[in-house]
Amino acid sequence: MGQEHEIVKLVYEAKDSMERADALIYQYMPFIRSETAKFLKRVPIDGHDDELSIAMIAFHEAIRGYSRLRGAFFKYAAMVIRSRLLDYQRREQRHSHVLSLDMPDENGDGVLGDTVADKRVHSEEMIAREATRSEIEELTKQIASFGVSLTDVAENCPRQQRTMEACRKAIGFAKANPTLIDELVTTKRLPITRLAEGSGVERKTLERHRKYLVTLLLIYSNGYEIIRGHLQHLWKGGNGQ
């Protein structure tokens, strides 16, 4: 009982912070591993089995979704993990007709992967990925100077379609008026009033998603071409600019 109280306290503390949840997961890795093992009916291998990662994200969900009313935390977490793994397994079954590259080939003297011609150029891909990575690191650094982390942005990201539309409108307005973005970069303050007036979006909506807007506007400041290229869908729907 005393232990249960302790874990409940920890879980409630970890609800608001992904970092704390991360630490909690590290602490309870053996539990997650054992739940995964129960599901797979074998010991999962670190860095190889996707199921383990999925069990971890399920543990995150359990931390978020837990409430004292739901009984003991570990029972609840075990249930969430199991159902998440089951979901994953069902999804994978849809692709079960896909052959594995690791399967032995017809002759039995190699794996299937060796016989497939790889059209992609690995070296170029590696270079592109490296470039993307440096861009992302740059962005992470820049938003850190605004006191924002990518995890924060993920938390702060609009979920409703309508809110997303509103944010998109605001970003579109800022894109058309680069002075706003310049102002953001120099003053490190989001010109919410002008954004709201210019785009016709309610000030409250913008304030609520401040971190998200800051990040997106920074992406549209300068550099970050790769990320910007990735966001091609952003303007396809709605009010494409």
Partner: peptide
């Protein structure tokens, strides 16, 4: 691609 940031299993 819509500009959403999401958390996912690593």
């Amino acid at each position: 691609e819509d500009g959403r940031l999401v958390k996912a299993a690593n």
